[in-house]
Amino acid sequence: MNRLGGALVLFAAALLCAAAPRVGDAKEDTPVIVAFGDSLIAGLGLPESESFPAKLEAALKARGKEVSVVNAGVSGDTSAAALKRLDWALADGASAIIVELGGNDALQGIPPEGTKANLAKIIEAAQAKHLPVLLAGMEAPRNMGRDYTDAFHAIYPALAAQYGVLLYPFFLDGVALEDSLMQADGIHPNAKGVTKIVEQIMPKVDELLARVKPKD
């Protein structure tokens, strides 16, 4: 993630690019996963069909699982900004949520305790709706200093333990810093990178779906 050190300008300039979540488009008995996050979820720089939510849904269906994955990613979102739109993202019909946030917080040097507090509120809100949660961790750029990166890294396992949610430690694991899997900005995965993320996170998604309660 140390290539992220000079990326603040790119994130700050990113426009909101996510369409409103289409939870209502799924069949009544189809589980709906809301992928909630920033540009890594929204699919900045990629066609919608190559975004993480679209590829995850396609991969699940290829394995015989009829699941709808909603793209609730907004480029440039910090954890605080995402928290403000959570109710909009978790429209009626959501069955589970994947939370991928924190990268922009780190780029802006937001104190880790603030990021942790916002993510805790997101988890609490989801659990209040009886939605199982998969928390996808991020890492801070190393140029933020050892104390900051250590404190930031500790956010995700601490929250997973506190709330009993599923944890995927690093959303870009095996993809970050791999030129063949990243776009030219060195920050966002290309289509091949998204495919690898989907492949690697799939076991945790299976666990998430196993926690989904049948719809009434």
Rank of each mutant, 00 (worst) to 15 (best):
M138R: 03
E124S: 12
L134Y: 11
N118H: 09
A125H: 14
P111F: 08
M138W: 05
N143F: 14
G109H: 10
I122M: 12
A117G: 03
I122Q: 04
V133E: 01
A125D: 13
D147A: 15
A106K: 02
P112E: 11
A126Y: 11
T115Q: 06
Q108P: 00
R146P: 02
A140S: 08
H130T: 09
G114K: 13
I122A: 02
Y148A: 10
N143V: 12
I122N: 02
K116S: 15
L119W: 08
P111N: 03
A120M: 04
Y148K: 12
Q108F: 06
K129L: 13
K121F: 11
P111Y: 07
Q108L: 14
G114I: 08
G137Y: 05
L135E: 01
G109A: 10
E124V: 13
G137P: 02
A140H: 00
I123E: 06
M144C: 03
I122G: 00
P111L: 10
A128T: 11
D147G: 07
I123M: 14
I123V: 14
M144T: 07
P141F: 07
E124A: 15
N118P: 02
E139Y: 05
P112V: 01
L135A: 08
M144V: 03
H130V: 03
L119H: 04
V133Q: 02
R146K: 14
Q127C: 05
N143W: 12
A106S: 13
A125S: 14
L134W: 07
L131K: 05
K121M: 14
